[in-house]
């Protein structure tokens, strides 16, 4: 593992993905949960770009391009939902939004 290789990118990607997953499970502020989802998406992007480098294939970078577009759309819709909920209730955490629970 002396020279820079795709394995390094995959290891870093695994670490960032796990940190994001723990954050998503632990935090209860919906905005910070969104940020953790962004972290996980970025970890996946990192793995794609590392593999594109390792296999000498531009297809990995194309996948990252599409992931970025979908992530932007997801953030726009998610934040709109958060704004719509927070307008009606002050200081909402994810735990308070259990009205769909049976």
């Amino acid at each position: 593992m002396g020279e820079l290789s795709a394995t390094w990118y995959l290891l870093l990607s695994a670490a960032v993905f796990s940190i994001g997953a723990v954050g998503l499970l632990v935090r209860r502020n919906p905005l910070i949960m969104f940020m953790c989802v962004e972290l996980m998406l970025n970890a996946v992007n990192l793995a794609f770009v590392g593999m594109a480098f390792g296999l000498n294939d531009i297809g990995g970078q194309v996948a990252v391009f599409f992931v970025m577009v979908v992530a932007a759309a997801e953030v726009v819709v998610g934040l709109a939902i958060v704004v719509a909920i927070m307008r009606r209730r002050e200081g909402t955490t994810a735990d308070d939004l259990s009205v769909l629970r049976g």
Partner: peptide, 21 residues
Amino acid sequence: LLAVILSVDGLTGEASVTSPI
């Protein structure tokens, strides 16, 4: 993830012939 990455040493698959970087 670590077990998978280290067991296959990160790279599986062939280098691209149609769209190389």
